[in-house]
Amino acid sequence: MIYISMDDTDSLESRGTGSLARTIAKKLANTYKIFGVTRHQLYEHPDIPFTSHNTCAVIHVDDKGEDAVNELFEIVKNEMLMDFIEGSDPGIAVAERHQITPPLIAFGKDAKNIILNQKQARTLAANLKIKLEGLGGTEEGVIGTMAGLGLANSRYDGRFLMPGQSEVMGSNTVPELLNMGVDAVYTLDGRQIKDGTIYSRNERLVKPCPVGDKVVLYVEEKDGILKAVNRD
């Protein structure tokens, strides 16, 4: 698995990092097998600049090898530069699963709870031989991109913005969800749902969770109606 992590690509007037990551993932799907795109919540603190939410996005590519890493880095870097928004501070990092060692996983966990800095992120990337680059502004996005790698690799953090190579929008039956890349649907009280329709609030993007190597959608039942629940 190769992880492509992106952060701080937006401003108040532009689309968010998650939207950009989904757009890029769809383009990559013409050549690569995309396992999905995940969103990861980072620490929200007055001393940390962010737009609406302090999150990063990670594209999971089912491939391996240094050549693929280098090619993906250049493709996504160019896409991000073409989409650069004044006032943003984007960063990109690309790594294979074997490069994501315990210190990077700890960095990702810390990024959810404390303030980190660019020096820590860049030193970690250099020591682990991970391709990391700031693409404009203050380049503060390199912090969230490195955190995203560790969080995505844990396979138990965040939400899927795309489970597989396409988005899941609106209300769908369970069989339809399974065909879209969702592996299982569960209520929060432990019941597995195998049929029926799962409704999305306001018919928006449905965001299942990574659970191990599975894509799991959590739902809640009220008055006999099953509704998708967003959880991190």
Rank of each mutant, 00 (worst) to 15 (best):
I4Q: 09
D7R: 06
L12P: 13
E13G: 14
R15Y: 14
G16K: 03
T17K: 06
G18A: 12
S19H: 13
A21I: 04
I24M: 14
I24H: 15
K27H: 14
K27P: 14
N30C: 12
T31Y: 11
K33C: 10
V37S: 11
V37D: 06
V37R: 05
Q41E: 05
L42Y: 01
L42F: 02
Y43V: 02
D47S: 14
D47K: 09
F50T: 00
F50D: 00
T51Y: 03
S52Y: 07
D63Q: 11
D63I: 03
V69E: 09
E71G: 05
L72M: 08
E74V: 06
I75K: 05
M80E: 09
M80F: 08
F84T: 10
S88D: 15
S88A: 15
D89G: 14
D89H: 13
D89N: 12
A93S: 10
A95C: 03
A95P: 00
E96F: 07
H98M: 07
I100H: 02
P102A: 08
P102T: 09
P102W: 05
L104A: 02
I105M: 07
I105P: 02
A106C: 00
F107S: 00
F107N: 00
F107T: 00
K109D: 00
D110C: 00
D110K: 02
N113I: 09
I115V: 14
I115E: 10
L116H: 14
N117L: 08
T123E: 15
T123I: 15
T123Y: 13
T123K: 09
A125K: 08
N127G: 15
E133M: 08
G134R: 04
G136H: 03
G136Y: 06
G137I: 05
E139K: 04
G141E: 06
G141V: 03
G141R: 01
G141A: 08
G144V: 03
T145H: 15
T145S: 15
G150K: 10
A152H: 15
R155H: 14
R155D: 15
R155A: 15
G158Q: 09
G158W: 06
F160H: 11
P163S: 09
E167Y: 03
M169F: 04
M169P: 00
N172Q: 06
G181L: 01
D183Y: 03
D183G: 06
A184D: 08
V185L: 02
T187W: 01
L188D: 10
R191I: 01
I193N: 01
I193E: 01
I193Q: 02
K194T: 13
D195V: 02
D195M: 07
T197R: 06
I198Q: 08
S200T: 04
R201W: 04
R201N: 11
R201A: 12
E203G: 07
K207F: 06
P208Y: 04
C209V: 11
C209L: 09
C209I: 05
V211S: 01
D213F: 04
K214W: 02
K214C: 07
V215R: 07
I225A: 03
I225H: 09
I225K: 09
I225P: 10
V229L: 08
V229P: 09
